[in-house]
C-alpha cells in the first residue's frame, strides 16, 4: 500500500530534495590553488627548475639522436667512459714496499715481472730516449675489493655503534619527555627541547665540528650519527610512552607499583614492536648515512669514495658504489627477515 510522502519523514525533518548539499570544492579552494601555483612558479625560478627541464630535454634529444651532444650527456659520459671495468685489483712495485718478504707473500697475491718503459733525456744525443727496465710487482687480483669491503665493514660498525649510542642517550630523553612519566614540567620541556635540538642538527654539519674536536676518523662519524638519531628516538619513544594504552598502566598503579615497574610491565611490552621497527629503520638509515659521512672525514667508506672521486678514478668509484649498493640491499633483506622473527 502506497503511503503519502509526508508519512515517511520522521517528525518534522525536511524532504530529501530540500536537504543542503555541499560542492566538493568551492571558489576558496580554487583561489588557494591559484595562489599556490604562483608561489611555485616563483620558487621554480630560484631553484632553476626551468633550466633543469631544458637540460634534461637536450639530453633526451641527444639520446634519440636529434642533437649531436648535450651538457648532461658530456658529464655522464665522462664517468661512464672510465667507470668500467670495475677495479678490483691492486698492485705495487716491490721496490716501494717496506719490509718486503719474498717468502711470505700476503694472501691471494702473486709477483709479476714487467718491463717498464720510462723516458729519459739523453744529453749526448740531445733527445728523449726510451729506457727499458725490468721491475717486479706485487699483484693482488682482488686487493682493492677486499680493501673496500673492509672499509664497508668499518662503515657498518660505525652505523651499529651510532645506533647503540643513540638508544642509550634517548632512553632518559624518552622517560623525561613522556608527559605522564616526567617528574615535572621542567624536565619534560628540557628533554623535549633536547630531542628537537639533536634532531634539527644535520649530521654532516655536526660531523664537520666533531672532526675538528675528535680528529679524522670514525669517532666523529659515530658521534654525529648517534646524537642526531638520539633526537629521533627521544621523540618517538616518548610519544609512544604517552600514547600507550592507559588501562593496563592504571591496573598496575592500583596495585601500588612504582613508576619504573609500571613502565617495565605495562608500557614497554606494548610499545616494543614499534620500538624495534624504529630501531631497525634508524639502523638502515645509519648505514646509508655512514657511507657518506666519510666525505667530511668522519670515517667509513666515504673517505675512500671522496678521494677516488676527486682523482677521477671512476673505476674504483664504481667498485665502491657496487659494494655500498649490495650491502644496503642485503641488509634490508636481513632486517625484513629479522623483523618477522622478532615482532610477533
Amino acid at each position: 500500500m502506497a503511503r503519502p510522502d509526508s508519512e515517511i519523514f520522521v517528525g518534522g525533518s525536511k524532504p530529501a530534495q530540500q536537504w543542503r548539499v555541499r560542492q566538493p570544492y568551492g571558489p576558496k579552494l580554487i583561489l588557494g590553488l591559484l595562489f599556490a601555483a604562483v608561489l611555485l612558479a616563483l620558487s621554480a625560478r630560484h631553484t632553476q627548475i626551468d633550466k633543469m627541464l631544458v637540460m634534461t630535454a637536450e639530453w633526451a634529444a641527444q639520446i634519440v639522436g636529434l642533437r649531436p651532444s648535450s651538457e648532461v650527456g658530456k658529464g655522464a659520459k665522462r664517468f661512464a667512459d672510465t667507470a668500467f671495468p670495475l677495479v678490483f685489483h691492486e698492485e705495487a712495485p716491490v721496490s716501494r714496499i717496506e719490509k718486503f718478504d719474498r717468502n711470505n707473500l700476503p694472501w691471494l697475491s702473486h709477483l709479476e715481472t714487467r718491463t717498464v718503459e720510462s723516458a729519459r733525456y739523453d744529453f749526448d744525443r740531445n733527445e728523449m730516449v726510451a729506457d727499458f727496465e725490468k721491475q717486479e710487482f706485487l699483484v693482488k687480483p682482488v686487493g682493492y675489493l677486499v680493501y673496500v669491503c673492509e672499509k664497508m665493514i668499518e662503515t657498518l660498525e660505525m652505523a651499529l655503534w651510532a645506533t647503540l649510542l643513540s638508544i642509550v642517550i634517548s632512553l632518559p630523553l624518552a622517560y623525561f619527555g613522556a608527559r605522564n612519566y616526567s617528574p615535572n614540567r621542567f624536565t619534560y620541556s628540557a628533554s623535549r627541547l633536547t630531542s628537537s635540538f639533536l634532531r634539527a642538527m644535520p649530521e654532516l654539519v655536526a660531523a664537520l665540528f666533531l672532526v675538528l674536536m675528535y680528529g679524522f676518523g670514525p669517532i666523529a662519524g659515530v658521534l654525529a650519527l648517534g646524537l642526531h638519531c638520539a633526537g629521533f628516538f627521544g621523540k618517538f619513544y616518548a610519544d609512544d610512552i604517552e600514547n600507550a594504552e592507559r588501562g593496563p598502566q592504571e591496573a598496575l598503579i592500583a596495585t601500588g607499583a612504582g613508576k619504573l615497574a609500571v613502565l617495565r610491565y605495562a608500557v614497554i611490552p606494548q610499545v616494543l614492536p614499534q620500538y624495534i621497527a624504529y630501531t631497525q629503520y634508524i639502523l638502515e638509515r645509519n648505514v646509508r648515512m655512514a657511507t657518506v659521512i666519510g666525505v667530511v672525514g668522519a670515517g667509513g667508506i666515504g673517505i675512500e669514495l671522496k678521494g677516488r672521486f676527486d682523482m677521477f678514478d671512476f673505476g674504483h668509484v664504481s667498485t665502491i658504489l657496487l659494494v655500498i649498493f649490495l650491502t644496503v640491499l642485503g641488509l634490508e633483506r636481513i632486517s625484513q627477515w629479522l623483523r618477522k622473527r622478532i615482532i610477533r
Binding site: T255, G256, A261, Y265
Partner: peptide
Amino acid sequence: FNLVGRLNVMENVLSGSLGDVPAWRAL
C-alpha cells in the same frame, strides 16, 4: 580486564605483586 596483551598469563598475574616485591626483582 586491563591485562597487558603481549605479556603471558604468568607475567600478568605476577605483575599484581609489583607493589610488594623489591624493586630489583620487579625490574
